[in-house]
Simulated assay, not measured.
Amino acid sequence: MTRTSWHITRTDSAFTLSRRLPARFDVAAETVLPAADPLRLAHQIRQDLWRQLQRLRGFAPVVEITAAGQGLRVRAGGQVAGRVPANAAAQITEVLENPARRARWIRHASRGQGTSLPDSRADAKDSHRIAAKIDMKSESAS
């Protein structure tokens, strides 16, 4: 059984994806990205952030996304149980500013926009039903 206990917190101005509540930034970096689906974007960033910092003891990733003009302001980092290494913020900045990763994130988070696919901001509990509906439509189109 997979662990899917990611906490999604939405306010009028921000979207936050975190492993623990309350979300806490012991270390963080920021960037601005073009407009895209915040849930898909947050998960992609979280995955790459975890891959980079998984050796940091007690690290729990947090990604916060807010609207910034025509784009999105992303603050990524997380909670660390213990001492935060001096190079942790630089490692996060390296992940956020990597051109190949940024292109992949935007490509993934923009997928399906402008079509009749369901909004991926739906609660995570409904994602299996949404996927089943999409699969049923593709199978019945013969």
Rank of each mutant, 00 (worst) to 15 (best):
residue 120 S to E: 11
residue 112 G to T: 06
residue 14 A to G: 02
residue 8 I to Y: 15
residue 110 S to Q: 14
residue 118 P to E: 15
residue 70 Q to N: 09
residue 93 T to R: 15
residue 131 A to L: 11
residue 83 R to F: 04
residue 5 S to W: 08
residue 45 I to K: 04
residue 131 A to K: 06
residue 16 T to S: 05
residue 89 A to P: 09
residue 77 G to T: 12
residue 59 F to R: 07
residue 107 R to L: 03
residue 9 T to R: 05
residue 18 S to L: 04
residue 113 Q to N: 03
residue 108 H to I: 13
residue 55 R to H: 15
residue 8 I to D: 02
residue 114 G to S: 12
residue 141 A to K: 13
residue 11 T to P: 01
residue 46 R to H: 09
residue 74 V to F: 11
residue 56 L to N: 00
residue 22 P to N: 07
residue 67 A to F: 01
residue 141 A to E: 13
residue 54 Q to R: 14
residue 56 L to G: 00
residue 61 P to R: 13
residue 134 I to T: 05
residue 45 I to M: 07
residue 69 G to Q: 10
residue 53 L to S: 02
residue 6 W to T: 08
residue 69 G to A: 07
residue 137 K to F: 10
residue 21 L to M: 11
residue 62 V to H: 05
residue 54 Q to W: 06
residue 61 P to F: 14
residue 76 A to T: 08
residue 98 N to R: 15
residue 9 T to A: 04
residue 142 S to I: 11
residue 83 R to W: 07
residue 124 A to M: 12
residue 79 Q to T: 14
residue 83 R to V: 09
residue 49 L to V: 09
residue 48 D to M: 01
residue 112 G to I: 09
residue 8 I to S: 02
residue 60 A to V: 13
residue 111 R to Q: 13
residue 77 G to R: 07
residue 68 A to I: 01
residue 104 R to G: 09
residue 2 T to P: 05
residue 38 P to I: 00
residue 62 V to G: 06
residue 49 L to S: 00
residue 4 T to D: 12
residue 57 R to Y: 10
residue 51 R to H: 11
residue 101 R to W: 15
residue 27 V to C: 08
residue 125 K to C: 02
residue 63 V to K: 00
residue 89 A to I: 10
residue 8 I to R: 12
residue 109 A to V: 05
residue 56 L to Y: 01
residue 24 R to F: 09
residue 78 G to Q: 07
residue 108 H to V: 14
residue 14 A to E: 15
residue 31 T to H: 05
residue 133 K to M: 14
residue 129 R to H: 15
residue 82 G to K: 11
residue 57 R to F: 13
residue 12 D to Y: 02
